[in-house]
């Protein structure tokens, strides 16, 4: 079915409390906003604490998006923590024309059997390694964001890289190593994301 006018790209994020999935979700909203889109970024809130599975959502549209319900049939699912596969049905409702993007050292072929028969694209990205190489610390957010943008095409890639650079320059003013490290992690993740 062809997309209706202003039909949303809907993304669901899975992570653990404290890992930054919510931050990554809001970051994606930020960059989509910067590229001229209308965005929604909203975590699902409950009494969860550090370490508990959490869910966050993005809705990205060309015009103002009216819907305020949760997302049940996402176009993309992003899993920030691989260990969630054991406890969370991450592909629930995920459209087959979409993709699952997971932070893992494994290949898409190794991940697929762990998903409950999901037939769409499975993409893996070793965000930890990329982050360790580029920043010396495990901050998976930047690589995950790069992978999502690369896979979903929800925003223009060139524009995205430019916006992120400006954002890092603003955020880490004067800390050249952090700006360069994050940019390197971003680009690397866009190159290295494995689509299977």
């Amino acid at each position: 079915m062809a997309k209706r006018l202003n039909e949303a790209v809907e993304i669901r994020w899975h992570g653990r409390g404290g890992q930054g999935a919510k931050t990554a979700c809001l970051l994606l909203a930020d960059v989509a906003f910067s590229s001229g889109k209308h965005v929604q970024g909203f975590p699902e809130y409950g009494p969860e604490r550090m370490g508990a599975p959490i869910t966050a959502y993005n809705r990205i549209t060309d015009e103002h998006c009216k819907v305020h319900s949760n997302i049940y049939k996402p176009d993309y699912v992003v899993v920030v923590d691989e260990t969630l596969l054991k406890s969370v049905d991450v592909t629930k409702g995920l459209k087959e024309k979409g993709a699952l993007i997971i932070n893992s050292k494994k290949s898409p072929e190794e991940i697929r059997p762990l998903l409950k028969g999901y037939k769409g694209k499975v993409c893996t990205i070793d965000a930890e390694k990329i982050s360790m190489d580029a920043l010396g610390k495990n901050f998976p957010n930047t690589p995950m964001l790069g992978a999502v943008v690369k896979v979903s095409h929800v925003i223009d890639q060139e524009r995205f890289i430019q916006d992120m650079k400006e954002s890092f320059q603003h955020k880490f003013r004067g800390k050249e190593n952090l700006i360069e490290g994050n940019m390197s992690a971003l680009k690397k993740s866009m190159e290295e994301v494995k689509v299977g």
Partner: peptide
């Protein structure tokens, strides 16, 4: 829904 949801 709106209090924590980021939008334009």
């Amino acid at each position: 829904i709106t209090s924590h949801g980021v939008s334009n």
